[in-house]
Amino acid sequence: MNLDYFQLIDRIVDLNLGERTIVVEAQVPEKHTIFEGHFPGFPIMPGVLLTEAMAQSSGWLLLGVLKFERMPFLAIVKEAKMRGFVSPGQLLTIEAKVEHEGSGFAVTKAKGRIGKDLKCSAEITFGLTPFPDPAFRVHMDAMAEKIGFPMQVLKHD
């Protein structure tokens, strides 16, 4: 995780476009200023950042499903549940699955785990729009490479 740049996932572990699923990993930093206030003496990852990590994971899944032809943007978070604490230094694994895609929207369900322990979950709705400009698409391609997005999935049949 690179909290300062709001990059909350480190690597894509598995992207299965046939099943419309993704698995990503995020190494929670051992030390970061965010933990100084959340909470002193008992540092935990804020729920809003866990929710954002699930949204980013879902977003990368949707980029694959859409073959980078449209960009997902966060529209609605429903049923977000924080089920346990995520602490500095832990490896967070997030799984997401597309539940619906069409009519300019997509819905995913995502779960975050530490080992086998479920820590968070949410249903997330995205609007789908063309990329705002070519420079942003170039940036997204660079980020995709950085986190191990399997670019070969973008090839059309």
Rank of each mutant, 00 (worst) to 15 (best):
Q152F: 10
F131L: 02
G102Y: 05
V24Q: 03
S103G: 02
W60N: 08
L61F: 12
V24I: 14
Q90M: 13
K81L: 06
T129K: 11
Y5W: 02
L8P: 00
P29K: 11
K67T: 14
Q27E: 13
E145D: 15
F136P: 00
L92S: 00
P134Y: 05
K109I: 10
L91A: 06
K67Q: 15
F68Y: 15
M82C: 06
F131C: 00
V13Q: 12
H139F: 13
L3R: 02
L74M: 09
R11K: 15
F149N: 00
F105R: 04
D14T: 08
Q7Y: 00
I114T: 09
G59D: 07
G18N: 13
G112R: 01
N16G: 03
D10A: 08
A75Y: 13
K97G: 07
N2F: 14
R11Y: 04
V107N: 00
A75D: 05
I34K: 02
C120A: 15
E25N: 05
K78S: 14
L92R: 03
G102S: 02
Q7V: 03
R83H: 09
Y5F: 12
A122T: 05
I94N: 01
I114E: 10
K146I: 06
V23H: 05
S58V: 07
A106L: 06
E52H: 13
G84S: 09
T33H: 07
E69L: 13
H100P: 01
K155R: 15
L49S: 09
I94A: 03
L66V: 08
A144I: 05
E25R: 07
L154S: 03
P43T: 10
A55E: 11
K31D: 13
H156N: 08
K97F: 01
G64N: 10
L66D: 10
M151A: 13
T129E: 12
F73M: 14
G102K: 06
I12W: 06
D4P: 01
L91Y: 09
M1D: 06
A96Q: 03
L118V: 05
D157L: 07
L8F: 14
F85Q: 10
F136I: 08
H139P: 01
A80Y: 12
F149C: 00
E145H: 14
H156I: 07
M45S: 09
M143P: 00
L128Q: 03
A75G: 06
A142M: 14
V28G: 05
A55S: 14
S103I: 08
G59V: 04
V77E: 00
D133G: 01
A55D: 07
L63H: 13
P88C: 06
F149E: 02
L61E: 11
V98A: 06
D141F: 15
K81P: 03
P88F: 07
K67L: 12
Q90Y: 10
L3E: 02
A135W: 08
A144E: 04
